[in-house]
Design a protein around this nucleic acid. Structure first.
Ligand SMILES: Nc1ncnc2c1ncn2[C@@H]1O[C@H](COP(=O)(O)OP(=O)(O)OP(=O)(O)O)[C@@H](O)[C@H]1O
Length: 839
DNA sequence: ATCGTTGCTCTTTTT
DNA sequence: GAGCAACGAT
């Protein structure tokens, strides 16, 4: 990483000199001078901007310890926001280790968990007693908005995860008679979600100047929001948006809440979105201090609304804020660091940074291209078998898409290599897991989505019509509530009949209602793990699985769910603050009564918090340290982690960078993702590609990723594995990739026209995907601000000459839309683009 | 009214 | 390979 020193964008505040602080706490000795400066920063906000492995997370951890030990800050007034629950847990442990035993009451959580916690705490009662207000100020604040942005969920509210939210969305869509063929629900939902995370309001998209997609999506979104509120449910976005709007519309609530956030620390700031930024702003009190840490090269969530401007504008947003840059990498060896640096240097949208390591020596990253995805997996397996030293859990295989894990897993199973696929949502998206969770959900609250799912598995002769009829039994009450009331009331048979159900249907409904009651009885006494077992027995779910296929796998997954329950519940007990137990008061609002359990405390709260925490589980959260086995996960899930040995599998065009990013998407983000992956490695880094790969059942023919050729060729070793006999025999430096083409003629599938159409490619460097710079003949000079006006001609180092058609923003944020003569219209950030103008 | 089967489509990353 | 709409059987 021998980048020229980047332009100084931020001056480090001279006020926070290191000498001010005597490192009385021994743990400060574990920091280098720049880290120490950041950790002990006082009196203002601070951005730590630094590359991979430079100890940003360590700075946060030590700062928390320092705030408590040296500045005597009440831990309850410290909040650190991390990207996953797992990293929050690790941070909690490290702080404990630094400070010694003693409970840390600091909030260490994710943004979503924070939103949840606030919403759970903000009951009318809690608020009234804290502020002396009377009446229902919160609820009224929500109503006063008119637009309905602010909404205080009823106390029994639940979180719908992506699947559940999408199910609601689909219902709304079909209620509006919008076919899912013409209007992809997932697309529309994510369109709205992205908009919401940019603080846009999709319900205002009905105006004529919106494009068709948005108008339609906006219509569905209004229905969706109404349906979610009627169900007493919040989605992931709500967890951020609702607290924001509630505080905005109710200043005393904001003041009351902000008082707790005297010290706010944010990890992975480069991947925060606009709402999160606003939340941070809203939560800061007058004398609060904010520290954010981030790395613009590791921003990998722009596709879901992460906004790099949060980092770029930090000093504008928080005037007087300091910036500390860390430059020493403690994680990787020089060759790995250099290779990663040379890759990400291909991005234009970056500030640039220098990063060095004392870990001289070490082996160069190795790239190998295999014939097929299966051979790729076998190659990886072989490399792992050959490593005698490494602990398996210190090895990670990272890939772009989940689908890639299958092939690797199969090979690993065959070769008996212990491994773990990390990916929580994957696990919780399994059918059997979702089915059982629907039952659990039903025990806790009257949830129609859960009712529909549970009542149909195993099938009980009750379908959509009957459930709709249940929903109409009592106006304004859910089908689940009606069922519970009818079945649990006196003379249920008569009630059902009077409600208009035929005897046969009534009998089935009653049987199901009684099943739920009996399970509620169990839920009130037994731990969640036991409850799961009882549920699948009594509901006939076990029997259903035994009749079907993959019985053992599926039962095994439910066993895992039960053991996850044990772990999560015991974790939760440790983390819980007294306020987590929100006792629900009798509510006057009928629609708010979504609680199916009555007021029985204890085990029910445990079950509720278990369900809450499941909904918020990140992929990375499902990994349990200490369990042996190679880790398999997506690159996204690997963010923030480190391993001795890292394999990046599937380094192929259209897979990585993914095809969607090539078609007008964000290739730079893919490159950052690759950078993130490479920099997870401490000692060894292997990159691999397959020449042909099964993608959705079809065999596809793929070129090696451009990222391989973008890495400085002196920093990566290319091995030929197309012929296994030659594997490892010859290392050579890739000035040309010739020789990688062998062996394909033998393949059976070579009659497939798709194969024959592929031109023989013998030089990766000549890949058409690699953009050759467009030359501008004529003399130019670097552009200055006054050159960059609409209509002026500029010259871009890669795209060549073009005319500015639109400008937006100003200063560091100045963005230009330029119609390039050769390469079409593109939007560039003036600061990054190294533009020139004709002299 | 409900349930299971068939045939079709589209394929990223996630809190 | 999963999810879904549409169909036909119960
Ligand atoms: N001053 C130090 N001395 C020794 N080791 C350090 C020091 N600072 C950080 N480390 C180690 O370097 C590694 C990377 O640190 P950390 O995870 O905090 O970096 P990071 O900047 O958050 O990384 P990334 O952005 O890549 O996730 C860790 O193993 C950490 O223990």
């Amino acid at each position: 990483m021998n980048d020229p020193q980047p332009p100084v964008l931020f001056e480090t505040s001279p006020g926070s000199s290191r000498e001010d602080v005597a490192p009385a706490s021994s743990f400060l000795a574990e920091l280098n001078p720049l880290q120490l400066e950041a950790v002990t920063h006082r009196g203002g906000h601070c951005l730590v901007l630094a590359g991979a492995g430079s100890g940003k997370t360590r700075v946060l951890t030590h700062r928390i310890a320092w705030l408590i030990a040296e500045r005597n800050i009440d831990p309850a007034k410290i909040c650190a926001v991390t990207f996953t629950n797992k990293s929050a847990g690790e941070m909690r442990n490290r702080v404990r280790r630094l400070l010694g035993p003693g409970k840390s009451e600091a909030w260490l959580l994710t943004f979503h968990a924070m939103g949840l916690r606030l919403l759970r705490e903000w009951t009318e009662e809690a608020f009234s007693s804290a502020t002396g207000a009377s009446g229902s100020p919160l609820r009224d604040a929500g109503k006063a908005g008119g637009k309905g942005d602010a909404w205080l969920p009823p106390s029994g509210f639940t979180i719908y995860n992506h699947d559940a939210s999408l199910a609601v969305w689909k219902q709304c869509q079909s209620a509006l008679r919008l076919s899912t063929r013409d209007h992809d629900p997932g697309r529309m939902f994510s369109l709205c979600s992205r908009a919401v995370s940019r603080l846009e309001d999709p319900s205002s998209w009905d105006s004529a100047n919106q494009d068709y997609d948005r108008r339609v999506a906006g219509r569905v979104w209004k229905e969706y929001r109404a349906a979610m509120r009627a169900a007493g449910a919040v989605d992931f976005d709500d967890l951020l948006v609702l607290p924001l709007h509630l505080m905005a519309q109710h200043p005393p609530l904001r003041a009351h809440t902000a008082a707790r956030f005297q010290q706010l620390l944010i990890d992975e700031y480069q991947d925060t979105n606009r709402i999160q930024y606003r939340l941070i702003q809203t939560l800061l009190g007058n004398d609060s201090e904010l520290m954010v840490v981030g790395d613009e090269d590791q921003c990998i969530y722009r596709w879901r609304g992460a906004d790099l401007n949060n980092v770029l504008d930090f000093q504008n947003d928080f005037p007087g804020a300091s910036v500390v840059r860390l430059e020493q990498n403690y994680r990787s060896t020089q060759p790995i660091l250099s290779a990663a640096g040379s890759l990400v240097a291909n991005n234009r949208q970056r500030l640039g940074k220098s990063l060095w390591t004392e870990r001289e020596g070490g082996e160069s990253p190795i790239f190998v291209q295999c014939a097929t995805d299966r051979e790729e997996a076998q190659w990886i397996a072989r490399r792992i078998s050959e490593m005698h030293t490494a602990k398996l859990s210190d090895i990670a295989i990272l890939y772009r898409t989940h689908a890639q894990s299958r092939q690797i897993e199969e090979v690993f199973i065959g070769k008996r290599i212990p491994h773990r696929v990390v990916g929580g949502q994957r696990f919780f998206a399994r059918r059997e897991v979702r089915d059982v969770l629907a039952y659990l959900q039903l025990l806790v609250r009257d949830d129609d989505l859960a009712l529909r799912r549970a009542i149909a598995t195993p099938s009980r002769g009750i379908g959509p019509k009957t459930i709709a009829a249940l929903g109409n039994v009592t106006a304004g009450s859910s089908a689940a509530a009606a069922l519970r009331q009818l079945a649990d009331g006196a003379e249920p048979e008569r009630s059902f009949r009077e409600a208009g159900f035929s005897p046969a249907i009534a009998e089935r409904l009653l049987a199901f209602g009684r099943l739920l009651s009996s399970l509620r009885g169990v839920a009130a006494k037994k731990p969640v793990a036991d409850l799961i077992g009882t549920t699948i027995e009594r509901s006939g779910y076990t029997a259903l699985l035994e009749r079907g296929e993959n019985t053992d796998d599926r039962l095994g997954n439910l066993g895992e769910l039960a053991s996850a329950a044990k772990e999560i519940v015991s974790d939760g007990a440790e983390i819980a603050t007294s306020k987590t137990e929100v006792q629900r008061p009798a509510t006057k609002h009928g629609a708010d009564d979504v609680n199916a359990s009555g007021d029985r405390p204890g085990k029910f709260d445990e079950l509720r918090s278990f369900l809450d925490r499941l909904a918020l589980l990140a992929d990375a959260d499902t990994d349990r340290d200490g369990v042996e086995g190679v880790r398999l996960m997506t690159l996204h899930a690997a963010k923030g982690l480190e391993f001795n040995v890292v394999f990046l599998a599937g380094m192929e065009e259209e897979l990585f960078p993914h095809a969607t990013s090539l078609a007008g998407g964000d290739v730079e983000e893919e490159r950052r993702l690759c950078y993130v992956g490479m920099t997870r490695a401490r000692q060894r880094l292997f990159l691999s590609a397959a020449r042909s790969r099964r993608v959705n059942g079809r065999e596809r023919w793929l070129e090696p990723s451009r990222f391989i050729s973008e890495i400085d060729p002196r920093l990566i070793v290319v091995r030929d594995y197309l012929n296994p006999r030659a594997a490892g025999s010859k290392d050579y430096v890739p000035n040309s990739f010739s020789g990688l083409g062998g062996r394909t003629g033998k393949r059976k599938r070579s009659n497939n026209p798709a194969y024959r159409q592929q031109p023989a490619h013998d030089s990766l460097r000549a890949s058409p995907n690699k953009t050759a710079p467009v030359k501008f003949t004529g003399s130019t000079r670097p552009a200055i601000a006054t050159d960059l006006l609409e209509g002026s001609t500029v010259v871009h180092p890669t795209f060549g000459p073009g005319k500015i058609t639109v400008t937006s923003g100003s200063g560091e944020k100045l963005k230009l839309t330029v119609r390039f003569r050769k390469t079409g219209t593109k939007t560039v950030i003036a600061k990054f683009a190294k533009l020139e103008v004709p002299d």
